[in-house]
Structures are given as structure tokens and as C-alpha cells.
Design a protein around this nucleic acid. Structure first.
Lengths: 232, 232
DNA sequence: TCAATTAGTTAGATAAGGCTAACTTTTATA
DNA sequence: TATAAAAGTTAGCCTTATCTAACTAATTGA
């Protein structure tokens, strides 16, 4: 059985490779800063994960997940997202509170428990932050989406997820009055400093990249994600 | 914050002192066997717990909990029993499955989480094994009860709890067809080998001390626990 | 009451996961 | 293309929680 720590390494690797498009491997430094440990620690640990056939890795090379490592990492994310959903739906936690608690709950191993929880929640497809929940086999369909930063002036987009799950970020989203599935219009886009003016529920807000880089949207005109070829 | 291990030591101490009547302290060996570690390990650990003012202890002496240690231990038990209740009531686990899972879940620290769970479960007073759940302040009322071994021939008693939470034991209880709150009659009691013949729902069973020592009952005539002065 | 048994302690080792400091590779750039 | 900067590794140390082996204290009972 994997330790708490090993699971966190695999989870971070999934996030830095599979969930980060155009990347299927990552360096020691990046992984270290993601886990807030020192590169030396990662160097050591990655050798142990390789010995367990969970990652592919050669000295001075990049790190990637093996099939087994990927599945294990996905299961941690499945557990995390199901617990987040439980906390919000059943225990009335706000979306900025659930992440931290799920960081602990995700390490409860029982397969049976998590599948019962899934059933109890009526097999949710998305967690409170709009992220897809991997299925019982660790598979996931990452829907088409782009960041708000990529939207153009005049676009009407729908928020589908948030990238940053920190409570500070989510509280700012709440303050602006934005909720998953809300539509908004891009009123202005200043190329110079990347500030964007958006209109939500009749109200305008000027937001910075700190915000727009962490909001996932789909263009309201082409909601069928897979068919979307538009440049909106 | 207490570590996983420290919490297990405090929980075991609560079980061996507060829950064991007539005892308020325990020796190193007993604690070690309860935790399935070696006495040497306990000797070391207890010094650390004393340094944190969680236990009272002098070299070669007995171990007892301080007020702070007792409260911490009680909170672990509160969390354990609430999770057990959740698993049975909401996720349809059987009572022989919940203990092991709760051993992991009990170490999730958030006070807010556990109080929300308590509310979600509608403030249960007892867990699936019939044990009282400590309140938000770590207080508990241990109701009057005795083991089935103490019952006398002819007594009519009601099962209120089980002492042994292992799945083997609970599966045996299921096999006999016994459920918490059931009444039974003591038909025979053989002093020689302590075998007892009980009648439950019209069916007779011969049971050994392995069973009777681990079943808590109250005499059916005097259910008001606190007022009970009978010798049944 | 003293010897044997039981209970408890200490010292030294191990494994996991982390650190710092010093070193080596790789890469990027002038 | 040489060299500085960035990225990665190694060695040695720390802490927590565990162990074994050897020792000491306390209790028990003949």
C-alpha cells in the first residue's frame, strides 16, 4: 500500500502532467515547488517511486508516470473530489473550505468506501470547483475549456471550473459574485497590462491575470465541448 | 497538533482507564499489548506524552491521563464513533465493517467537520455497537450496564452494546441473530465451564465466555440505568 | 526474606521523509 | 563556444516511531 507521501507525489505528478496540456513529463524543481519540499528531497523520493515502477525516470532526466502510477494518482484525485463534493452537498461547507479537508480525507484507502460515497452522492460528474471526477477505473474526460485570459473582447463565455482551489482565490470569486455555470461578457481587454473588464449579472468588474488565468470557461455559443472548433 | 500515533496512545488510555471501571491508571505492558507495540516503545513514548502534559507518569510507575490528555483521547473516540455511525446509517456498511474504516477516519482533525457530521447524523447518542458518543466537549455518560456473563439464570436482559468490535466477533453475533436492543432470557448457566444457554426470538443458543464477556446488557426490568440498584 | 518472576528501562539500530551544503550536469546566452 | 546560470544529485544529518537485546526495579511467594 502506498504511503500518504507517495500518494501526494503521484497526485502532484498527475496535476503537472496529465492535467497540464502539452506536457507529459516534469522536472525535479517543478515537482518540488508543487509539493513545497526541496529538490533534494524529490530527487531521493523519485528514485524510490521508480523502484516501485510508479514513475519513469533517469538521472538528470524528466519525470513521468507509468500506467500504474497514473492510475494510483488518479484514484487519489477521485477520492479528493468525491470528498469535496460530499462536504459541500451534504455537510454544507462552502467551496473555499472543502479543499483543505479533502487533502486529509483523500488518503483514506478503502475502495469500497469511496465507491459507496460515489453512490451516496448519486455519481457526480464534477466536484464543487467544476473539475471532472475520475471514474472507478481512474479514467477521466477532461472537457474542452480555456482560461478566461484566452477569451477575446465581445466573447460571451460560461465559467465551468476554477484552476486555483485556495480559499483566498475562491473567496475573491465569491466576492465578485461568480458561480459555476454563470455566463459573462468580455467588455474590454487591455493588451498592455492584460486587465479584462467583464460583465456578470449586469455588473462590471475589472480583473487581472491573477484572476483570469485561474478561471476556466467555454464559449457560450459552442457548448458541445468536443465539437468546438471555434476560435472564441 | 497531535500525531496519528499520539492520538492512538491517548485513545487506548481512555479505553483502558476511563472506560474500564475501577481503574484510572494502567501499566506500560498493558498499554503496549493494547497498541500491539513493544513495552520499550511505550516506555519511550510515554515520556514524550508526559513532556506534553498529556499523561501523568513517573519512572516505574503507572500511567494516567491528565485532563487535557483525557479530552484529546475522548475527541478521538467521538470522531471514531460518529464516523462509524455515518458509515452504517448513510453508506449502508454492516456493523462488522465500520470499525476498521473508522480507525482511519478518526484522525481527520477538523472540529468543524466532526460537528457538521454530528448534525448531519442528527446528533446520535450511540454508535452502531451501542457505545455512547462523547459530546462536543468530550464528555460522555456511560450508562449502567453489565456483561452477559454477570447475568443469572432466569434473568431477562436487553443487549445494549458489544465490547469487542472485531469483525469476527460481530459476525458471530449476527449469526446468532442478535441485534442491539433485543431481549433474551438466560435459560441455563453452567458454573463449571461458564457456558450459558440463552433464548433469543424463540431460539436457544449455548454460548461461551468468549461471547458473554463481550456483550453488554441491562436487566429488562430496570431499564432506567441510573436508578438501577437491582442485582440482576 | 530472598530468589524468581514479572514489569519496566536504556542503548543502539532501522526506515521513512525531510533538511542543508557542497558538488555535478545541463542549458542558455553573450 | 565558453561560461554563467539553472537544474539536479549526493552526502551527511535530523526527527518520529518502531524494534531487539541487555539491563534494572518491583513484586510475589516459598
Amino acid at each position: 500500500m502506498l504511503s500518504f507521501t507517495e500518494e501526494n507525489y503521484l497526485k502532484a505528478l498527475v496535476q503537472l502532467t496529465i492535467f497540464e496540456d502539452g506536457k507529459d513529463e516534469v522536472g525535479v524543481n517543478k515537482l518540488a515547488s508543487c509539493l513545497t519540499v526541496k529538490p533534494a528531497t524529490v530527487s531521493d523520493m523519485v528514485r524510490k517511486l521508480k523502484a516501485k515502477s510508479l514513475v519513469n525516470y533517469e538521472k538528470y532526466g524528466k519525470i513521468s508516470l507509468t500506467a500504474v502510477g497514473k492510475k494510483s494518482g488518479m484514484m487519489v484525485i477521485r477520492r479528493h473530489r468525491l470528498w469535496e463534493t460530499f462536504l459541500q452537498e451534504k455537510l454544507d461547507f462552502s467551496w473555499d473550505e472543502v479543499h483543505e479537508l479533502a487533502e486529509e480525507l483523500e488518503h483514506i484507502h478503502s475502495q469500497k468506501l469511496i465507491n459507496r460515497l460515489d453512490q451516496f452522492l448519486d455519481f457526480p460528474a464534477f466536484d464543487p470547483h467544476g473539475d471532472a471526477i475520475p471514474n472507478v477505473d481512474g479514467e477521466i474526460v477532461i472537457p474542452f475549456r480555456k482560461t478566461l485570459s484566452e477569451a477575446k473582447k465581445g466573447d460571451v463565455v460560461k465559467i465551468v471550473a476554477v484552476k486555483d482551489n485556495s480559499s483566498e482565490f475562491l473567496q475573491y470569486v465569491d466576492k465578485i459574485g461568480l458561480v459555476i455555470q454563470d455566463e459573462m461578457t468580455i467588455k474590454e481587454k487591455e493588451e498592455f497590462d492584460s486587465l479584462i473588464t467583464i460583465k456578470i449579472k449586469g455588473k462590471q468588474h475589472v480583473v487581472s491575470p491573477r484572476f483570469t488565468d485561474n478561471i476556466f470557461v467555454v464559449c457560450a455559443k459552442c457548448l458541445k465541448a468536443k465539437d468546438c472548433t471555434c476560435k472564441h
